[in-house]
Amino acid sequence: MTGHEEIIIAGFGGQGILSAGRILAYAGMLEGKNVSWLPSYGPEMRGGTANCHVIISDEPIGSPILNTATTLIVMNAPSLDKFEKTVVPGGKVIIDSSLVERKPSRDDIDIYQIPATMLASEMGNLTFANIILLGKFIKQTGIISKENFAIALEHILPEKKHYLIPEEIKALEVGMNYCE
């Protein structure tokens, strides 16, 4: 699988925004690609919002700071408002529609609305919502295989959460297979 993805993941603190980015970066590395992960650590974190920039590329990575994104994954409304304009024409926006009612106003991007938090709640664990959205991401971009995603989960999740991995993989599949 080849490609270049510039991904912004954004939402509230506690939704697993930063770890979602770390899982993607790790899986990208397993794919043999160059990767970078840059968390927000500045004053915007007050008020509880969090975001991270992830680059997965066949090319050497220049700046890890993204001014534009090929894919935006959002888990709250303020993040959609803030980052919608950063998506390149032809890019993708993956939205947790359980938490974000609004649809992006642009018609030059692909929009995927997935009620990830609701689906996660049906699975019995709200913390799977981020994984469900990542499932949609790997399905639509093909830049990461399910197998490498699973290995990445093992490395990024702390050991005490490893018992959850089989369920997390199911959540990934829920996202991959979700049809609007």
Partner: peptide, 10 residues
């Protein structure tokens, strides 16, 4: 700087 300190890379 904070970018270099905070970022993850291979």
């Amino acid at each position: 700087d904070g970018i270099l300190g905070q970022m993850m890379e291979t």
